[in-house]
Simulated assay, not measured.
Amino acid sequence: MTTTMKGEAYAYAAYSLFAAEADRQAHPAVGKLFRSTAQTELNEHLREAATLAGAVGSNAANLRQAINGETYEHQVMYHRFADQARTDGDLEAAKLFTEIAADEGRHRDAYRTALTVVTTGRGTIPAPPKADTVSVPAGLPKVKAARTQANLDTALHGEALAHAKYMLYAAQARQTGNPALARLFEGTAGVELHEHFAGEGVLAGLVRPTKKNLSKAITGEHNEATTLYPGFAKRATAVGDTAAARYFRDTAADEAKHAAAFQQALNQLH
């Protein structure tokens, strides 16, 4: 289910940017289509996968998971990506990776403080961080090394998943009577999406003109509908996990509808 959640979270984040580009190019109907599809990916597909996977636990368990993820990104992943980008001559990417590593350290520290409050009842939940929102207009990649591009792709998927998980954790915190913790998760989720994912998206050339964005979305949705999710469903059926198999079949059918809707939108732009 981790692969599923990561893919759905990425689709939500990317389609949100594609929607903004469609609006910039005066294609409001396409922007609306991207936004509605993004909401389906996040609020239906990802949430259902998270439920099946048991991805959301108690507030303390959610904080521990978040701390582990932020620690890895702070201490290992982004420092390695920065070093590799510097070696490959992608200095702008190295700078961004270094800045994000520092942000993730601050997120980890805030979550550690929050965990102490949740587990001891003493202290105050830290105030949520505020995102420095990055605009992502259409553009080509701004990095030259294949390794940097691959690392950007890994980072983009990770930031999208972090955003989605933190929003789920925020909902759990709010439902259990801890609005301060919910705000911390929501604020951090905003940084992951609007600052980190967006900044990486600029360097990766994630957003292109709307016709290309539609073509990319069609390819992705078609692959999920015909290959990825049917394969997952087959494996789930083989081990007797009927609930997961049903989820994968239903999601494959949804993705086929998304592909068809995107294709229709593309046809109308020609």
Rank of each mutant, 00 (worst) to 15 (best):
N178F: 07
A9E: 00
P209H: 10
E104D: 03
A244K: 05
A101P: 05
G231C: 00
R112V: 03
L52Q: 10
S58P: 10
T124S: 13
F197P: 04
M167W: 10
R64F: 07
G205R: 00
A66W: 04
E41G: 01
L17I: 00
L269V: 03
L161V: 14
I67C: 05
T242I: 11
A94I: 00
A26V: 01
L266A: 13
F185H: 07
R147Y: 05
Q25D: 14
F18I: 05
D254C: 01
P126N: 12
D90M: 04
P141L: 09
A61Y: 09
I100Q: 07
N151W: 08
Q264Y: 06
D250Q: 13
V134L: 11
A9Q: 05
R208A: 05
G187N: 04
H258Q: 02
A38V: 15
L228I: 15
E73T: 13
N267W: 08
T148E: 03
T51Q: 11
K95G: 05
N178K: 05
H107Y: 06
E48W: 03
A171G: 06
E41M: 02
H163R: 12
K211S: 13
A217P: 11
G158V: 00
L17P: 04
P28H: 04
A245Q: 01
A50H: 02
D103C: 03
A101C: 12
R80C: 01
A19C: 06
A256C: 06
A164G: 14
V239H: 05
A9L: 00
G54S: 09
D109I: 12
G89Q: 08
Y166R: 05
G54D: 02
T116G: 10
R47K: 13
Q39E: 15
Y166C: 06
S16D: 15
H107V: 06
Y111C: 14
R108K: 14
G89H: 10
L266T: 13
H74F: 12
D250E: 14
T119V: 13
H163L: 01
K144R: 07
N267A: 12
T219E: 15
H222Y: 15
P209T: 13
P128E: 03
H196M: 04
T251S: 09
T87F: 12
S58F: 04
H45Q: 14
G121Q: 08
V134N: 07
S16A: 15
H45V: 07
A233V: 02
A253D: 15
S135V: 13
I125F: 08
T251F: 02
A217H: 09
Q264A: 12
Y12L: 11
E70C: 07
E159V: 06
V56R: 02
N213I: 01
T40D: 13
L152C: 10
T154C: 03
A127V: 02
E195D: 10
